[in-house]
Every structure is written in structure tokens, then in C-alpha cells.
Design a protein around this nucleic acid. Structure first.
Length: 279
DNA sequence: CTCCAGGGATGAT
DNA sequence: ATCATCCATGGA
């Protein structure tokens, strides 16, 4: 295996892969094995050097969004205790550029699931329907295309532990496979229009749509509100208030966190989920 | 055992 | 327009 190197400043590989935005990278020695699109990849960080194999340098740089102006993005976050703690905890965490269908499909599977189980579902789908790829002496699987999943059955999908989500994944796969839902063409749509299109897909509501917009369409303003973020918001911004409606939270986030709200959200999410116990 | 998880769709107020 | 309920499954 030939290892290449690239300088990556303001980048934390481990946080980027383990923050809950992507679900298939697995620890392998002191690096990670996964796939970027159809290609197996191995990635490891040594200081400011990103070592990689299996894919081209420009593929790595694009996938990990090494061009995002991270310092500027972090400076744009509101200067508040909770946000500052999350910013400090998540240094180097980047929102990556995921393949659109892969991201959409895994988040359709994410509803009412813990991160650990979303990883299991992703692995089961890959093993059963994905193309095997190998690198670093281990076999991985590319995420199955919409066309491949479209020709599966709900029963087969349920065998991957999808439960009630199987029907939605199958129906969405079929719409994407036929071209009725053209995920690539949607990249040109404005945020609101893109969100509306995504929400028309079975199993996709506002939360999942915002995740897909943030992680696969580079809409860095998109602010997914899940149970963790809702808890953080209520604690930090609406303490001592009984009822705060979903719409109220929605409006608050959109105007409060600004043009890189999605980054702020991911930092708050990762900090709340993994960081606060250790502090 | 119980509780809860990166929610969405549906039907009742 | 909000609210309640159901939906499968497994980790904690």
C-alpha cells in the first residue's frame, strides 16, 4: 500500500469521522478505513500531515473539505459560553462533502436510532448490496447505489435491521433510480426549494433534509434540530420556559447562528453527545 | 427489566 | 396549525 501525504491545517480526522455526520469509517491501527464513493480509502493523521491511500489527493481534499476556511467559520459563531465550549472541544472538525445518495439513504435510516446503530445499518446495507473494495489488508464495501437498492425488496432491507424505515428507503431509492428525484440536478436549487424537494421523499422530513443539505449539498447554513440539539437549545437559550414550540426553535436557530449555522450545530451536537461528560 | 435513540407519517383536536 | 400515537430495533 502506497501512502501519500498532504498538509492539512486546522483539521482533526478523528473528530471529523466520529462526530455523527458519516457512519462507515472504521478504526484500523492508528488510521481509518472506509470508502469515498466507489473507492476504498485509508486515512491517517500525523500532526498536520494527512496520510492517505486508495484515492487521489484532490479527492481527499474535496471529501474532507480542506478548503473550508475553518478559522473564519468558527469566528462567525456567536460568542457565548455554550458555543465557546463546543468550539474549543471540536477544534479541527470539518463538515465533509458526502456523496448525495449515500448521505440521503443513511439519514433516512437514522430516525429514532442511536449513532452506533446507524453504523450497524450502514454496514449491513453495504455488506449485502454494496460492491466489495479492499485496502490496507481489509475488505470494505462501497455504499449501494439507489439503482441497486431499488431492485431489492422491503423484506431484504428489513433483514438489515431497518425496521419500519425499510419501506421508506426502498421507495426513495426507486424515485432516485428512475430519475424522478434527480439529486445531482437539485444542487442548483436555492435552499428552500432544495429542502422542499427533499421533504417530498418518503422518510424525509425537515430534520433529515437539513442533514442532507449540510452534509451532501454543502449548505452550511442548514441547521438540523434533533433531540440532542433541542436539549442544548432549551438549556442554553430558553431556560425556565415550559413550552417552546418547534417553529420557535427553528426561527431562532436560523437567525441566531448565521451563515455557517450548520457548522455551529454540528459542534454543539458533537460536544453535547461526547464532550460534556468528560469536562 | 425500562428508557431512549441525529424522526416521519398520520389522524385527531 | 399544533398534538398524540405508532412505527422496529438494540444499546445503555
Amino acid at each position: 500500500m502506497t501512502l501519500f501525504q498532504k498538509t492539512a491545517n486546522d483539521f482533526d480526522l478523528e473528530k471529523t469521522l466520529n462526530c455523527g455526520q458519516v457512519f462507515h469509517w472504521e478504526k484500523h491501527g492508528d488510521g481509518f478505513v472506509g470508502a469515498i464513493g466507489e473507492s476504498a480509502a485509508y486515512v491517517k493523521q500525523r500532526g498536520a500531515q494527512l496520510c492517505f491511500a486508495g484515492v487521489a489527493e484532490k479527492t481527499i481534499a474535496k471529501y474532507f473539505s480542506l478548503d473550508h476556511p475553518l478559522r473564519k467559520i468558527c469566528r462567525s459563531f456567536p460568542d457565548e459560553p455554550g458555543m465557546n465550549a463546543a468550539r474549543a472541544f471540536c477544534q479541527g472538525l470539518r463538515i465533509i462533502r458526502q456523496p448525495r445518495w449515500e448521505c440521503l439513504a443513511t439519514f433516512i435510516c437514522s430516525s429514532m436510532k442511536q449513532v452506533a446503530h446507524i453504523r450497524q445499518i450502514s454496514l449491513a446495507l453495504r455488506k449485502r448490496f454494496g460492491v466489495p473494495v479492499s485496502i490496507a489488508g481489509s475488505v470494505g464495501y462501497a455504499f449501494p447505489s439507489a439503482a441497486r437498492l431499488a431492485e431489492s425488496t422491503e423484506a431484504e432491507l428489513r433483514e438489515c435491521a431497518l425496521g419500519y424505515r425499510a419501506k421508506n428507503l426502498l421507495a426513495s431509492a426507486q424515485r432516485v433510480a428512475t430519475g424522478e428525484a434527480d439529486l445531482e440536478a437539485w444542487r442548483k436549487l436555492a435552499d428552500d426549494e432544495l429542502r422542499a424537494r427533499l421533504c417530498q421523499l418518503p422518510g424525509v422530513g425537515v430534520k433529515v433534509a437539513n442533514c442532507v443539505m449540510l452534509f451532501a449539498y454543502e449548505r452550511l447554513r442548514a441547521f438540523p434540530i434533533d433531540v440532542w440539539i433541542e436539549r442544548v437549545l432549551r438549556e442554553q437559550y430558553f431556560p425556565r420556559r415550559k413550552k417552546v414550540t418547534a417553529l420557535e426553535l427553528r426561527v431562532f436557530c436560523d437567525q441566531h447562528f448565521g451563515e455557517h449555522g450548520g457548522y455551529a450545530q454540528q459542534y454543539l451536537f458533537h460536544h453535547a453527545r461526547t464532550g460534556r461528560r468528560a469536562e
